[in-house]
């Protein structure tokens, strides 16, 4: 294992996401959060590994399941929780909500609600990087369910044809809402398509942050150095339902338990414990608890956005009536 402090750092980052979302689920039950809330629990290693593999000025775009990616990239738990609570101190001023986290300062260019619609945007930010020659890479995430939709295909066709510095990552958590992969894809392996597009690909089951850094790192390097897009499929699992309104009856508890045993966060914790870091883990957990409790309090105490925000977030300057 690499340097233990680095691993401990990854553990802490994953734990922040995990605890953030567990508290968000609780706040949802209390009615403090409305609308849709899609939890990332089980998939955290991907977000944390991605953030570590990217440069700070690289672009990231994702789906509505966006809390983990925002937090890993540097959005504070305060700004994220406040967004869920619909407060003006939130990362999208309380106007976006759970599905639409935006944090331009951290080059988190948004969570998007229409399946597939954000993939061409990512090809577009990569296009801009190539146009300007700024050396930035774009990474974009989509689900297994999104692999079938037209925009996914079009984005990849263009990225390959125009050699855009973008990494397409399918976070394959095996389900599209209540539908298992076997009922959405004729060919289960999404990366088989890469040959047809003319781009390199990679496919692996997510076990650790290190592995994500290493595997994504290669594609990111390729995008940066040779302006070549890649398609990566990461097999993962969401522990919770699709969103808060989904009881997830389509999966057996045995299946869920099986994956919980392989949970990268749990595995890393066990590993660090065995390496004699129990005290440091406890200290990390305590500081995470404080950070999340502080975020909830901050979100509770923050003001709501007022109607005066609506016009200037619709147009710049005079309202076009």
């Amino acid at each position: 294992m690499k340097d233990q402090d680095t691993q401990l750092g990854f553990y802490r980052q994953m734990q922040v996401i995990r605890r953030f979302e567990e508290e968000a689920a609780r706040a949802y039950a209390q009615g403090k959060i409305g609308g849709f809330l899609h939890l990332y629990i089980g998939q955290e290693a991907i977000a944390v590994g991605t953030a570590a593999a990217l440069n700070a000025d690289d672009y990231l775009i994702t789906t509505y399941r966006d809390h983990g990616h925002a937090l890993a990239r540097g959005t504070t738990a305060r700004a994220a929780m406040a967004e869920l609570f619909g407060k003006v101190t939130g990362c999208s001023k309380g106007l976006g909500g759970s599905m639409h986290f935006f944090d331009a300062e951290h080059n988190m260019l948004g969570g998007y609600g229409i399946v597939g619609g954000h993939l061409p945007l990512a090809a577009g930010t990569a296009f801009a990087s190539k146009y300007r020659g700024d050396g930035r890479v774009t990474i974009v995430f989509f689900g297994d369910g999104a692999a079938s939709i037209g925009d996914c295909h079009e984005a990849m066709c263009l990225a390959a044809l125009w050699k855009l510095p973008v990494v397409f990552v399918c976070e394959n958590n095996q389900y599209s809402m209540g539908t298992p992969l076997s009922r959405t894809l004729a060919v289960a392996d999404v990366t088989k398509r890469a040959a047809g597009y003319g781009m390199p690909s990679d496919r692996f089951e997510c076990e650790s942050v290190n592995q994500v850094i290493e595997r994504f790192g290669k594609a990111i390097k390729r995008a940066r150095e040779t302006s070549e897009p890649s398609l990566i499929e990461v097999l993962t699992y969401r522990h919770r339902g699709h969103s808060m309104s989904d009881p997830g009856k389509y999966r057996t508890s045995e299946e869920v338990d099986e994956y919980k045993k392989k949970d990268p966060l749990f595995v890393l914790r066990t590993h660090l414990e065995k390496a004699g870091l129990a005290d440091k883990l406890t200290a990390a957990d305590e500081s995470v608890e404080q950070e999340i409790a502080d975020a909830v309090k901050f979100a509770d105490d923050s003001a709501e956005p007022g109607p005066e925000l609506l016009a200037p977030t619709t147009y710049k300057g005079a309202f076009a009536r």
Binding site: G34, G86, S92, L95, G96, H100, P305, L310, A311, T314
Partner: peptide, 10 residues
């Protein structure tokens, strides 16, 4: 005449 805001009161 605005896109729908998330905040409940808005």
């Amino acid at each position: 005449d605005y896109p729908m805001p998330y905040n409940a009161k808005l």
